[in-house]
Write a protein that binds this DNA or RNA. Structure first.
Lengths: 352, 352
DNA sequence: CCTTGCAGCTACAACGTTTTCGTGTTGATA
DNA sequence: TATCAACACGAAAACGTTGTAGCTGCAAGG
């Protein structure tokens, strides 16, 4: 086991000073050709790599991004991470991942754990619990310390920072309109409680479209699932709620704010003897593995998570590398969405 | 925007030395009660947190684990990451994620990018390309530099390091036996090319069980998918191969080495008019979202990814914190597997 | 009165870099 | 011969922290 060589040991070995070695390796013109060649050869031989930590300390930047998400076992978030990784790696940045598990406390801990100089900036999707508590001090404090934050998907309006979102309202309008155009008369929505902004906005789009089509809104057709900050073993709970929903509502079109709700609803519908898409058409949000491989395969809205990740990373790195340029001018990037036509809807959209 | 306070500014402000501040905060008995109280109050007020980077440099350890996996958009890997995160966070470690995308080159780059002092050790699942090239120099060099590696799932026998695996052979034997017990006469397997060790081992188990039951092995019933180092848009390719497979083989029982193969096979089987599980029983490997929400829901083998992650992190952190104790005595932990009975098999196992 | 001990604090080195500012040697120029 | 620039290199500081060793003043013991 040979230890990593440092400038110091190279210097001693070659009987020159540390500064000379450093400069030689960086090809400074202060150093003679001879010496440069000698040093470089030696460095190569011993596989010298500058110590990142020392560089971080000196430069006061770590070239590392902190990503804090509610959950990693979730297709949307992993595609976003892929996007972040892709862009960040390209720019020479590393990505360090923190999981909040939808918990406020874990989010705070993760933030603090990383805000000690370990990372240059954050990319965050806010935990449900945090959204429900409405306690955002950890974000403002972090920003106050000069550490920039980019929020994506689950963002907080009151926090001033860069954001990457989809146009939830418009997208949901498109989806519901599609159901209407496909012949649905009684359209329902399965959403989340209102403190989750994306749920609220998507519900808003649903209502807008009904209004625009002069269809009366029936509140019983709006199911707001409270998934208690964890999406693990509450599958039965979810099924129950949806079962009751179907008991009380006769719908022929259904829009859900994520794919799990859609898949589960299809399962329940099947139990009740409905066929899809003949008796019931379904559109989900977020294009994940479930949608693609469901039977019948689910028509969904693609959020383009990969792009969202890339945009988030770009926003953050731009801000890191061009500080106080356009200071305090925070951007919100709206990533476009697409409806992916599959088997749970009748109408095919020829126009992309 | 207030900058992070350092020991130095606290010292200056309080008109004591830096060492005094440091010691006061660490409750050293060298410092008088008065001074301690004063310093602590001040530190609290200004929300002082020791700079992690400086500590890392001094202690020569970063309290950060590097995880390099082939892909993150994959349920198994994300559950493993969850497990790693869980254990690591508990022990005060951070997790930095690198994606190889099944590419040898990216794996090497990621390793080098992190081996510069950024992390204390690695947890790795090897890229398919690396397995096929059989070029493992980057691993041995890393270990040689004193950076420990733990490999999980896709491991390399020739590299001496800690490993966390499932007993692929035994597990696959169990699964195939279950198909036999469930009345299947013609059992096939969809696996990967042999350079992927897990694929090879699972195929081995399949053969073992057929032999043990005096069933003749037919090579045409063994389909080895070559997914070309990426699992993205080769879905049609996969479907094609499976379609041909079904054309050439009449099977009533199918074991696949992952859930995607199983789901796809079910889809193709359905197209060919087979009903599941009446005409065809299926068991997959890796319990993911697909299996649970498929229709019919898929009987699978649970690899307990979360546990594998925890075990990997434990192995690594143990080694980091107790160096040269049991030096060179590498462990291989075999995590148990379970068959999760669902709707694609006929026989229900009452015994867990 | 001189040592010894101790409490309470400070100075300094070290971790590995980079960078600024020397400094000595050469050769050319006035 | 004195001056000066160019060249090749070294010393030292800095990033923020901790641990060791050293320093001061005071009280107790001989």
């Amino acid at each position: 086991m040979k230890q990593k060589p440092t400038l110091k040991v190279i210097a001693k070995e070659l009987d020159v000073s540390v500064s000379t070695v450093s400069k030689a390796l960086r090809d400074s013109k202060e150093i003679g050709e001879e010496t440069k060649k000698k040093v470089k050869a030696f460095a190569k031989l011993y596989n010298y790599r500058p110590n990142n930590i020392a560089l971080s300390l000196k430069n006061k930047k770590t070239k590392t991004l902190g990503v804090i998400i509610p959950e990693i076992v979730h297709h949307f978030f992993t595609t976003v991470i892929s996007g972040i990784e892709h862009y960040a790696n390209d720019k020479g940045y590393n990505v360090i991942v923190g999981l909040s598990n939808e918990s406020f406390k874990k989010e705070v801990i993760n933030l603090e754990m990383l805000a000690n100089g370990s990372i240059d900036g954050f990319i965050i999707s806010v935990a449900k619990e945090t959204l429900s508590f409405k306690d955002f001090h950890h974000f403002s404090e972090t920003i106050d310390q000069g550490i920039p934050i980019v929020m994506f998907d689950r963002v907080i309006d009151d926090i001033e920072c860069d954001k990457v979102i989809v146009d939830d309202v418009k997208t949901s309008e498109k989806a519901v309109q599609k159901l209407i155009d496909g012949g649905c008369k009684n359209i329902g929505i399965i959403s989340t409680k209102d403190y989750v902004n994306v749920g609220r906005l998507r519900t808003e789009g649903y209502k807008n479209t009904l209004n625009a089509n002069h269809i009366k809104i029936q509140n019983s057709r709006i199911l707001k699932i409270d998934d208690k900050f964890n999406s693990d073993d509450n599958l039965e709970f979810l099924e129950e709620q949806i079962y009751t929903y179907f008991e009380e509502n006769e719908v022929d079109g259904l829009f859900t704010v994520n794919e799990l709700y859609a898949i589960t609803a299809m399962k329940v519908a099947r139990q009740k003897g409905l066929t899809i898409p003949d008796d019931l058409q379904v559109i989900g949000f977020t294009d994940g593995v479930l949608s693609r491989h469901a039977y019948p395969s689910l028509t969904t809205i693609s959020q383009h998570g990969f792009e969202m990740g890339e945009e988030s990373a770009k926003l953050l790195i731009d801000r890191l590398e061009n500080p106080n340029e356009e200071e305090e001018l925070f951007k919100t990037i709206v990533v476009k969405t697409d409806i992916i036509d599959r088997e749970t809807t009748k109408l095919r959209n020829p126009k992309k």
